[in-house]
């Protein structure tokens, strides 16, 4: 039983990364009807930017002699990194997707792949092949509840993820931009005729998706502190699976499927040898999709941003 609960906790943490990244895929899909395949690499870039920001803040704190507590630096790192990475998203939309908005979908799809390769190899060219180690800003404390061990990092990762999802939910349901995004997902054509420019809503969507991926990048760095330029590929693909499994364009679906993916992987690894983890986990997901081809919250021929 304890082991079961322990796996639930681990699955929550692992699923948080997938969920945060999957949200970006889903949001972009729902308004532009294309998947931004560079999104996994935005996660990687976010992680590196987080590394840079955290290192800079630690350096500043050391230089100025002000003993800033680790959690404070972490909060600042998350905020600054999300902010900076959102511009990466805006840039990708501007140079990668906007010029191809009327191009065939296949061209727009490979744009993402190309941008992904550029980000990976660009990173490799600039920073070299050495792996970076993400600074551990908070000390690892382990709390014990019965037989279940929970570290403060796990609480932080799950807490920050859920908090961000809650904010996103409020933004999409209630704010003017969120309404514009939903409107775009229902009918693209009518939106400009209400005086709303698609060229403002599309970059905003990329910005928010990228900021969420950046948050995932930092949280991932806290849990698994080794950064390398290709870290976004497999994680990005898996988050993409979550976005599809949740139902294309469904925000709630993407988040839930992200967590589900985390649970499936963790529980498979609990029962089977860990080398077989992904083989079995993704066979299960393939099976789920066989019976629910539109995902959990997807409907045939619908692309709406739903919650």
């Amino acid at each position: 039983m304890d082991l079961f609960l322990q796996n639930i906790v681990n699955g929550l943490q692992w699923g948080s990364f997938y969920a945060l990244i999957a949200l970006g895929y889903s949001m972009v899909y729902s308004i532009l009807m294309l998947f931004n395949f560079a999104h996994g690499d935005v996660f990687m870039v976010g992680s590196y930017i987080g590394f840079g920001v955290a290192t800079a803040l630690l350096g500043l704190a050391a230089m100025s002699g002000i003993p800033l507590p680790g959690w404070f630096i972490l909060i600042l790192t998350i905020i600054f990194t999300m902010f900076i990475t959102s511009f990466v998203g805006v840039f990708i939309e501007r140079v990668g997707y906007r010029p191809l908005r009327d191009a065939p979908r296949a061209s727009a799809a490979i744009t993402g792949l190309m941008i992904g390769i550029i980000l990976e190899t660009g990173n490799l060219a600039i920073l070299g092949a050495r792996r970076l180690s993400f600074p551990q800003l908070i000390e690892s404390t382990t709390y014990q509840f019965g037989g279940v061990y929970v570290t403060d990092k796990k609480i932080l990762i799950v807490g920050v993820s859920l908090g961000l999802m809650f904010l996103l939910h409020r933004f999409i349901q209630k704010s003017k931009w969120g309404m514009a995004m939903r409107a775009m997902s229902f009918d693209f054509q009518a939106v400009p005729l209400m005086g709303i420019s698609i060229n403002r809503i599309a970059p905003l969507t990329f910005a928010i998706g990228s900021a969420l991926a950046a948050a995932a990048g930092i949280l991932y760095g806290l849990a698994y502190p080794v950064l390398d330029p290709y870290m976004g590929i497999l994680l990005g693909w898996k988050a993409f699976v979550a976005a599809i499994l949740g139902g294309r364009g469904s925000i709630l679906g993407a988040a839930l499927a992200g967590f589900l993916l985390g649970f499936i992987e963790i529980f498979v690894a609990w029962v089977f040898p860990s080398t077989l983890r992904d083989v079995i986990a993704y066979s299960i997901i393939l099976l789920i999709l066989t019976f629910r081809p539109h995902g959990f919250f997807g409907q045939a021929h619908s692309t709406q941003l739903r919650l």
């Binding site: 939903r182 409107a183 229902f186 009918d187 009518a190 209400m194 005086g195 739903r306």
Partner: peptide, 22 residues
């Protein structure tokens, strides 16, 4: 529009509020 371009799963009030976006 001739063939009604409404945002299907948004409420009636949201439609009008959305148009006031600017």
């Amino acid at each position: 529009f001739q063939n009604l371009l409404l945002w299907r799963h948004m409420t009636v009030l949201e439609h009008v509020k959305m148009a006031c976006y600017s």
